[in-house]
Design a protein around this nucleic acid. Structure first.
Length: 245
DNA sequence: GCGACAG
DNA sequence: ATCTTGTCGC
């Protein structure tokens, strides 16, 4: 008896239900801790994700870079690759980007690489159901996180804050011509989040953790392209890029 | 119906 | 995010 080969991605595509995703977000949002809940920060981590099309497949490459705090010296980096099986839908970004991040986070754990605070490339609470990807990752890992987004998703901007449903969901920070929206990811207050982001924003359009992750992301892409296709899931260290960054 | 819309 | 020609400025 022969079976038609069914791709994992096809199954996930079929299973993906937008309404259920909404409900999952609303449920998970109740677990977000909005107060400072962490010890002294010694290591911060930054994330970024880039995409790669190969053999008709869309791969997501997640970067997790670890920096000492407050020196901001990068000392380690992990990447995780997974096929992306969900389209980009505003408000449902986490469902699209979580799999590659899960691979990277698992690898980091395996290698004993830990962080005290994670800077995520995207919103946290500044989300229609209060569960942007920064909060999603925070709740799933149980670790403190902050959302740093380059553009607004919901709400109205007023006095360097973003208001939505009569609630302050984000703070607007600027550095020269650049601007970011900071929101609570998990286990941190909005005030502290804004304070820390401001502290690690040295140059460019993003604060150091995400800026470094972004640069590594672009450097590692050609390498992943060459070794792609050998296995479905890949992960590893990308620390060799650090001296170049 | 129209505009807004993380990455 | 990615693709992608041309242009502006250091």
């Amino acid at each position: 008896m022969s079976h038609e080969p069914v791709l994992r991605c096809e199954i996930i595509k079929k299973k993906f239900d937008q309404q259920r995703a909404f409900k999952a977000q609303t449920l998970l949002s109740r677990k977000v801790i909005l107060k400072d809940d962490f010890q002294a920060i010694q290591v911060v981590a930054g994330t970024d994700l880039s995409y790669l099309r190969i053999q008709g497949k869309e791969l997501g490459i997640a970067i997790l870079v670890f920096l000492r705090y407050p020196s901001l010296k990068p000392w380690g980096c992990i990447y995780g690759v997974s096929e992306v099986c969900v389209p980009y839908i505003p408000g449902l970004l986490a469902f699209r980007e979580m799999p590659p991040f899960a691979v990277a986070l698992a690898m980091a754990k395996r290698e004993g690489m830990n962080y005290d605070l994670l800077f995520v490339d995207g919103h946290g609470r500044a989300h229609p159901r209060r569960l942007g990807i920064a909060s999603h990752i925070g709740v799933v890992t149980g670790q403190p996180s902050i959302g740093v987004a380059k553009r607004k998703l919901v709400g109205i901007e007023k006095d360097n804050m973003v208001i939505h449903n009569n609630e302050i969901i984000a703070k607007v920070l600027t550095r020269g011509k650049y601007k970011v929206y900071v929101s609570v990811g998990h286990r941190i207050s909005l005030e502290t989040a804004a304070k820390v982001v401001s502290k690690v924003w040295r140059k460019g359009r993003l604060p150091e953790p995400t800026r470094i992750a972004d640069r590594i992301s672009k450097h590692i892409k050609p390498m992943i392209m060459e070794m792609a296709g050998e296995t479905e899931y890949l992960s590893g260290r990308c620390s060799s890029f650090l001296p170049t960054i």
